[in-house]
């Protein structure tokens, strides 16, 4: 019997990413945000999540991917981290998938730059790769 893991998947610039399902508090549609002047470009703003103020991090920017076209509104994947609840802005939400542990592989050495620290590895699905996001590292603001 091989262990399995469940991931909540989402899409960023055509790539499929996943975070452990236990980490995800909820998924919500686009929310009005309050921008934060002087903050790092990675931080998109603050949202009001039922009385709780949550910082929204644009994962495209965090992963050095090109900005999303302005007419496309991002969705929020609200995750629990050691530093509290953080919202990850993604293009679109996918399914929750269950994958077998033996399909996991570490990223190749050729993966460099920011993504090296953020992508823990990939699960080889039948028609695509599921990139596993390191949530704790992902919600850190890079030093500028």
């Amino acid at each position: 019997m091989i262990g399995t893991a469940q991931f909540c998947t989402f899409y960023l610039d055509g790539l499929t990413f996943g975070v452990e399902v236990q980490r995800v508090q909820e998924v919500i549609r686009y929310q009005e945000m309050t921008r934060i002047p002087l903050a790092s470009g990675v931080v998109s703003g603050l949202i009001n999540l039922r009385g709780q103020i949550v910082t929204a991090i644009d994962l495209r920017r965090r992963l050095d991917l090109p900005d999303r076209p302005p007419e496309e509104k991002p969705m929020n994947v609200v995750v629990r981290t050691d530093d509290g609840v953080v919202s990850l802005l993604v293009d679109e939400i996918g399914d929750v998938v269950e994958v077998a542990a033996d399909r996991f592989e570490s990223p190749p050495e050729t993966l460099q730059g920011t993504a090296r620290n953020l992508v823990q590895g990939a699960y080889k699905l039948d028609n695509r790769l599921l990139l596993v996001l390191n949530t704790e590292a992902g919600v850190q603001v890079p030093a500028e």
């Binding site: 009005e32 309050t34 949202i47 009001n48 709780q52 103020i53 530093d83 509290g84």
Partner: peptide
């Protein structure tokens, strides 16, 4: 007064954030 998350702690001009009457967040 609600504290800012750790990602925003380094910005000295903000003391925190709050939720206004219309439900939006203000710094």
């Amino acid at each position: 007064v609600k504290p800012l998350s750790q990602q925003l702690k380094g910005i000295p001009v903000y003391a925190g954030a709050t939720i206004m009457g219309d439900g939006r967040v203000a710094l």
